[in-house]
Design a protein around this nucleic acid. Structure first.
Length: 313
DNA sequence: CTCGATCCCTGGACGC
DNA sequence: TGCGTCCAGGGATCGA
């Protein structure tokens, strides 16, 4: 499942493989994961991909600025029009792949988009579950879309991390997964960094000590960098733009290790659902937060459950 | 503001 | 072998 390190790996591979290429034509098949399919068919043919960047879990295929190209072609003008940023956003979801292929390679199952390139190759997007997303955006709409997301976990400062985490009443696991808090962290790296920082996933941000918050930031960054170095985790069918799996899954300490011994203390790794996702942790190294439940609240809950049960009949 | 529930989707694991 | 069932999960959305 592509998270920050996996997306970074694919983006780097695509940067090396297709940056500078021109898109000749677009073929769409299933389009229910595309924001505006007609815009892609209309805007992309003829455009140069200048570079590929990662933004959170998105890849941005930046397109050559039209105005600059037009100005250069006409030998310049008296005014200098402001360049309008344009990009194709690609989110790989759970099972998305974006990779160049030779046209004689058979079309893989679930290939939904093909970009024919000016060197004869095809950039193909396949996605079995179609949890991914694709969108062509430009100008203010592109900027507005990117503004929805939080800090890049690799660059976030201690101060900003503390501001985004330390004052929140939500569970730390939910905060790490919330893309408007941090962009790029998913379930694997959330669990791995919480284990390393010895923080229980159900602890709230506000109940973490400043030292714990900073430890989490540092461990998260170290883990993400190491995972990028190993070209990501291949736990389902993740492969990079060249079809090669990553190696970081061999370094997972808790993810997918339910019932196995903690590498630190030997206790059995447990799995709970937090923020609607399975969360793997060590019950000894990552002690559960003390639940301070008021009597009033527990009564309320009982009452509500009872009324819900009766309303069913 | 935060929560859980629900939906989207398909392949793979598992039980019989 | 083949069927049914459950589960995985990122993100949007809704109601509490």
């Amino acid at each position: 499942m592509p998270e920050l390190p996996e997306v970074e790996t694919v983006a780097r591979g695509l940067e090396a493989a297709v940056a500078g290429r021109r898109i000749l034509s677009v073929t769409l098949r299933k389009t229910d994961f595309i924001d505006d399919p007609a815009a892609i068919e209309r805007e992309l043919p003829g455009r140069h991909i200048v570079r590929i960047e990662r933004f959170g879990k998105f890849m941005l295929l930046k397109l050559a600025d039209r105005v600059a190209l037009a100005a250069r072609a006409s030998g310049g003008t008296d005014q200098a029009p402001k360049p309008v940023p344009e990009a194709l956003l690609v989110h790989l979801g759970m099972t998305g792949h974006l990779a160049p292929h030779f046209p004689d390679e058979p079309l893989a199952k679930h290939t939904h988009v093909t970009f024919t390139l000016d060197d004869g190759r095809e950039l193909r997007y396949t996605d079995a579950r179609r949890f991914g997303r694709m969108a062509y955006l430009s100008g203010p709409r592109l900027e507005a879309e990117l503004e929805r997301f939080g800090a890049d976990p690799l660059n976030v400062t201690a101060q900003e991390f503390r501001r985004r985490i330390g004052a929140r009443k939500a569970r730390i696991k939910a905060l790490l997964l919330d893309q408007s808090v941090l962009r790029g962290v998913g379930n694997i790296y959330a669990d791995e960094s919480l284990w390393k920082a010895k923080i229980h996933p159900a602890k709230t941000g506000a109940r973490l000590t400043p030292a714990a918050v900073e430890a989490l930031r540092r461990e998260l960054q170290k883990i993400l960098l190491k995972a990028i170095e190993l070209r990501g985790s291949s736990i389902s069918d993740f492969v990079d733009a060249g079809g090669i799996p990553g190696d970081y899954q061999q370094h997972h300490k808790v993810y997918g290790r339910e019932g196995q011994a903690c590498f630190r203390c030997g206790a059995k790794i447990r799995r709970i659902i937090a923020a609607g996702r399975s969360s793997h942790f060590c019950p000894l190294c990552q002690p559960a937060p003390r639940v301070r439940r008021s009597r009033r609240r527990s009564l309320k809950k009982t009452k509500r459950n009872r009324s819900r049960a009766t309303s069913k009949r």
